[in-house]
Amino acid sequence: MAAVIAVVLLLAVAAYACAGGTDYGAGFWDLTAGGTERGKRPRWLIDHAMAPVWEVNNVWLVFVLVIMWTGFPVLFQTVFSAMWLPLALAAVGLVLRGAGFALRKPVRRIAGRRLYGAVFALSSLLTPFFLGAAVGGIASGRA
């Protein structure tokens, strides 16, 4: 049974990683899109391309955590005890990313759009960094 759960966990991590490229890459392109006028079209394309996948990515992540927690509780405890800091910072980044992406569109003022756009873009760069730091710590045997 553990092998079946491990395969499901691996497939869920792969799905998150594949769809995350669209999700996190959009934050980088948003950051480099340019000013208000030059960046208008690229930002519209980012919103249009990312809208179908950005919620699903968080669902995959929650699914991975639940499968890991219920299927391998000792592994879950070990990983989260050893890698609590990068995982906590990644969680904060996920929340800020979602808030920045969701709130930048309905805001009318340019200053507000820039603020939420910057939050979205910067947390899109930092979140994968912290997730990678946690994976690196696990792969190096620190967890």
Rank of each mutant, 00 (worst) to 15 (best):
A91S: 12
V119I: 15
I110K: 09
I5K: 09
M50G: 02
K105W: 01
E37C: 09
D23L: 09
G39Q: 06
G34F: 10
P73N: 07
H48M: 10
R142Y: 10
A139P: 04
A17I: 10
A51Y: 07
I46E: 00
G141C: 13
A90N: 04
M1Y: 13
V8C: 13
L45T: 04
V53R: 03
T36V: 15
R41P: 00
A82G: 08
G71F: 01
L94R: 02
D30N: 10
I67N: 03
A90V: 03
A15Q: 07
V62E: 11
I5S: 13
A6N: 10
A12L: 12
F129L: 15
P73I: 06
W29P: 00
F120R: 10
A134R: 03
D23W: 05
V56C: 01
M68A: 15
L31C: 00
A2Q: 14
A88H: 04
A111M: 08
A15W: 05
V107D: 11
A121R: 01
V95H: 00
F101M: 08
S81R: 14
V13M: 12
L103G: 00
A143I: 08
A82E: 11
Y116K: 08
V4P: 01
T127K: 01
L45V: 10
L45K: 07
V79R: 05
T36N: 08
A49Y: 07
A121D: 02
F129I: 15
M1G: 12
A49V: 07
A26W: 00
S81D: 15
G100Q: 02
L10W: 09
L96S: 00
R142G: 11
R41Y: 10
R109F: 10
S81K: 13
D47H: 06
L103Q: 03
G100D: 00
A82M: 08
D30C: 11
R113M: 10
F63A: 15
W69K: 08
W60Q: 05
I138Q: 11
A15M: 12
A19M: 06
M83D: 01
R142T: 13
V92I: 15
M83A: 05
V79D: 04
A121Q: 05
V7E: 15
G100K: 10
F120Y: 13
G71W: 04
V13Y: 07
R114F: 08
V79H: 01
V64G: 01
W29Q: 08
L31G: 03
A133W: 05
W54E: 07
A2K: 12
A19C: 03
L10C: 14
V135I: 15
A99P: 03
L94W: 04
G39R: 06
D47F: 00
F76I: 07
A6E: 15
G141L: 10
P106F: 07
R104P: 01
A134M: 11
A88C: 08
G136V: 11
L61A: 12
V107K: 00
V13S: 05
L96T: 00
V74C: 00
A3I: 14
